[in-house]
Design a protein around this nucleic acid. Structure first.
Length: 504
RNA sequence: GGCGCCGUAGCCAAGUGGUAAGGCAGAGGUCUGCAAAACCUCUAUUCGCGAGUUCGAUUCUCGCCGGCGCCUCCA
């Protein structure tokens, strides 16, 4: 394992050195399930997926936690407006999130803790912080974290070096709560009638209320680490750049003040934002794009993964139609090569040919790139290069050994950027047709998929016969007819032809 | 006001103190009856602009111009 990652905590590339040899604990901040997660959220999840996969491909055993935030202001507001409770309101969005996750081929985390299932650990954490003097109760009944009692506060975001402009973001009114210091953050929010109405209030020794957002991740992370016997410190904590401050800063303060450890996570990694056509996704701009939107537009998840991996995770990325189109074409090409490689003849094991260095080279390039702070664009470049070189070797009649194929499959399995719909091909041999005369075939395909394939194959055979008698006009007519119905014909050099369904 | 990021071919995007990966698009070619697919060749003497350090800078430093993010519950 030679993976180096950019650690936000030190602002340097650092080798990943797991606390327990061979094992990595990873916590990634998940979605707030108040709506459909958008493609920006998923860009972060996608880079985390690559990290997860690369750790596993490197032989590490990963314990991956992703939380679902199912109680917050927006959820309460929306549940309230619909006259329902927060659980019923969030449930469909949790399901939608898992659907989108699967569509984008994200490897499922080992646990998806929901905030409302971890109220007890949260209360214990707040109580512990109060007992240790890090937290106090305001006159409004809410409990706050006193940042001036935690000297390390600001280390992650370099807050000690910055001057805060109160309310600069315009997102929060500074005097909404009763705090000692304007920068103190809330751990436990005293219950309001609106909270009670939607089931967002719980009893606690310090008063009825609900958890603050930052508290959730600390409490769930620590509780799950303990349950798994993994100690009080995470190896990796990841999220989007916007979470550095205040979310992750606050998590560190709460967790470390509670455990007494120097770190909540040794390595903090953050992914950059995805913009859509030049601007940040926001309701105001009406440019929220979700995976389901893209799916409806016929975007292939493999192409989308390819597109996002063609830019480094710490670089801003603009999602555009041109980019999607380009990725779709690149993805198609990789898919063509992949199926060609799978179907090719094989060189016996132990016999070396030009495919042997091909495989070694691919492996070395991809591993080198991913080890270097997850340089996916470079890994993708190596994959394209291998696909071109591989096609050339196959053109020359040089075939891969099983080991070469396995290498390709394993490395592609890490990136997972092949198209979803490959379009199985049926081979038509001249003379081996069904014997059905072209005149007897229907010009339009049957609805049933299996019958449609038989129909296409029969037409292809008829075309082969026409070609055999040099009736090119008829052959071209049939090819056009099939194309119109969504079937593509490719003639091979040996006179055989392939028919395959084309997915638009 | 504070902290920070970015500006590389028509578009997207890696990268290095020693002279520019990869993808898409485009042009020509090989193969083919013609296509498709695949492959080959070509497409930035140049990395926003200016100055400095250096034998040498796209890569380091400073300034400028342009775009962007965070600054208390947004991935």
């Amino acid at each position: 394992m030679a993976l180096r990652l950019y650690n936000t905590l030190t602002r340097r590339l650092e080798p990943l050195e797991p606390i327990r040899s061979g094992q990595v604990s990873m916590y990634t901040c998940g979605p707030t399930i108040w709506n459909y997660a958008h493609i920006g959220n998923f860009r972060t999840f996608l880079f985390e997926d690559l990290l997860r996969r690369w750790l596993e491909a490197s032989g590490l055993s990963v314990f991956h936690i992703m939380n679902l935030t199912d109680v917050d202001d927006r959820i309460i507001r929306e549940a309230s407006a619909r006259g329902t409770d927060i659980r019923s309101f969030t449930e469909p969005f949790a399901r939608a999130f898992f659907e989108d996750r699967d569509w984008l081929r994200l490897r499922p985390a080992h646990v998806y803790p929901r905030a409302t299932d971890f109220i007890d650990p949260m209360i214990a954490l707040v109580q512990g912080l109060m007992d240790r003097g890090f937290a106090y109760q305001g006159e409004d009944g809410s409990v706050y974290f006193a940042i001036d009692r935690f000297p390390a506060y600001g280390r992650l975001s370099q807050l000690d070096r910055r001057e805060l402009k109160a309310g600069a973001s315009g997102r929060i009114s500074a005097d909404e709560y009763d705090k000692e210091n304007a920068q103190d953050f809330v751990l436990w929010k005293a219950a309001r009638p609106e909270d009670e109405a939607v089931g967002a209030a719980w009893d606690a020794p310090f008063g009825r209320g609900r958890p603050g957002w930052h508290l959730e991740c600390s409490a769930m992370g620590l509780a799950l680490l303990e349950r798994e016997g993994l100690g009080p410190v995470l190896d990796i904590h990841a999220g989007g750049v916007d979470l550095i401050f205040p979310h992750h800063e606050d998590e560190i303060a709460q967790s470390c003040a509670y455990t007494g450890e120097a770190h909540f996570a040794r390595m903090w990694v953050h992914g950059e934002f995805l913009n859509v056509r030049g601007s940040k996704m926001s309701k105001r701009f009406g440019n929220i794009t979700t995976p389901r939107d893209l799916r409806e537009d016929g975007v292939d998840p493999g192409a989308l993964r390819l597109l996002l991996f063609q830019t480094h995770y710490r670089q801003k990325l603009d999602l555009t139609d041109d980019g999607l189109a380009a990725a779709r074409e690149g993805c198609r090409r990789l898919g063509e090569f992949d199926s060609r490689l799978r179907r090719s003849e094989t060189t016996p094991a132990g016999e070396e040919n030009d495919f042997t260095p091909w495989g070694r080279n691919l492996e070395q390039k991809v591993a080198g790139a991913l080890d270097d702070d997850l340089n996916a664009p470079e890994a993708v470049a190596a994959v394209f290069q291998a696909s071109r070189d591989g096609n050339r070797l196959l053109d020359l009649g040089i075939f891969p050994a099983a080991a070469d194929r396995d290498r390709w499959a394993r490395l592609l399995g890490v990136l997972d950027i092949l198209p979803a719909e490959a379009g199985a091909a049926a081979i038509v041999t001249p003379g081996g047709g069904s014997g059905v005369a072209a005149g007897a075939l229907s010009p339009s395909p049957p609805a049933d998929p299996a019958e449609a394939e038989a129909w296409a194959v029969a037409w292809a055979a008829a075309r082969a016969a026409a070609k055999g008698s040099k009736d090119y006009k008829e052959a071209d007519r049939i090819r056009a007819l099939l194309a119109g119905a969504g079937w593509e014909i490719r003639d091979a050099r040996d006179g055989r032809a392939e028919v395959r369904r084309v997915f638009p």
